[in-house]
Design a protein around this nucleic acid. Sequence first.
DNA 1: CACCATAGACCGAACGTTCGGTCGGGCGCT
DNA 2: AGCGCCCGACCGAACGTTCGGTCTATGGTG
Lengths: 193, 193
Amino acid sequence: MSQQRVTYTPESLLRVAVELFNERGYDGASMGQLAEAAGITKSSIYHHVRGKEDMLRLALERATGVLFALLDEPDATTGRAIDRLRYVVWRATEVLIEELPYVTLLLRARGNTETERWALDRRRELDHRVADLVARAAAEGDLRADIEPRLAARLLFGLVNSVSEWYRPGRSGAGPRQVGEAVAAVAFDGLTA
Amino acid sequence: MSQQRVTYTPESLLRVAVELFNERGYDGASMGQLAEAAGITKSSIYHHVRGKEDMLRLALERATGVLFALLDEPDATTGRAIDRLRYVVWRATEVLIEELPYVTLLLRARGNTETERWALDRRRELDHRVADLVARAAAEGDLRADIEPRLAARLLFGLVNSVSEWYRPGRSGAGPRQVGEAVAAVAFDGLTA
DNA sequence: CACCATAGACCGAACGTTCGGTCGGGCGCT
DNA sequence: AGCGCCCGACCGAACGTTCGGTCTATGGTG
């Protein structure tokens, strides 16, 4: 059987790029390294994509898209605040895992480029919406009163987002659902027996 | 009163450097930007430090030093595992805040340089020691049985480490001790009222 | 079926810019 | 005079990107 020439699409090349950006950091990753990882030359890359920052933009748009979408899901918008919050925590963990490379890149954005600054603005928007939900749950008396809702919101999303730093598909033992459930369990009920 | 010429020491210059490295990422930060932030020229910097990677090394050595030191404190080495673990979680959060710029840089290290690879090795060592303690607490029946100790360890330090992403001295409302206590409280008892 | 034109995917070389760092020196203080 | 701290000019290497091309596959035409 003849060995066919592997060709890239913008999407498949983006996938390779995002893996490299996560491995080395966007600024630490060069187009030369991407060419090497993809097995084509630097100039070939420009046949498929407009440029380095454009790949970053596409990736960050995808990550923010899925995260905002989850906030509009029915179980995130109807019911008691504490139930909605539990759903958001569990579901955000699942979405983070499903789109791990893209969400990881978003969480690591620093602000050195226009694209990153846009993404950071979007993240702040997300954080505000979740913080509002936490404040609601606290107001309804379902959160412990000795921790300020703002602090609680930060710890919650710190916990969720930290999954991106260690979760590896196929290598973390637990699946997305299991990790999502564990994150929600620890967040609301803690680790003590 | 005459305006005296501000001069740097290696340590005060390192402090400026670490702030910049955290703001833009180590790879995204240039020596030109450091010169600008410090108010001196690039060549002046080399009078005080050996080079860019050397500043990174000094910072990461400092961060790993304080984190390993806390694991050797009496309250972290004697007593029931669950009590030692509570102390470590609370104390690690405090230390992270006290040495925020240095620990933040450590947590963001990627592995692009020899120095970063060394630091990542040290972090893995730290993670192993804490994971051992979590396993001990689980074996003593003090942790919930439905979450694997390895997963519990990752979530624990995910929570602690995430503080570096939002805590800002003087701007987060709560002090190091309060945040440390909140982290430990949420980690072991959860957010639910 | 053979030939040709076209398009898609690719490449080597080069560009302008930025990078970390060095060199040779000046200034102010003791 | 000597030293510490500073600086302008410059360096070689690496960066992201562009330019002008080649190669291969495909479809149309005779």
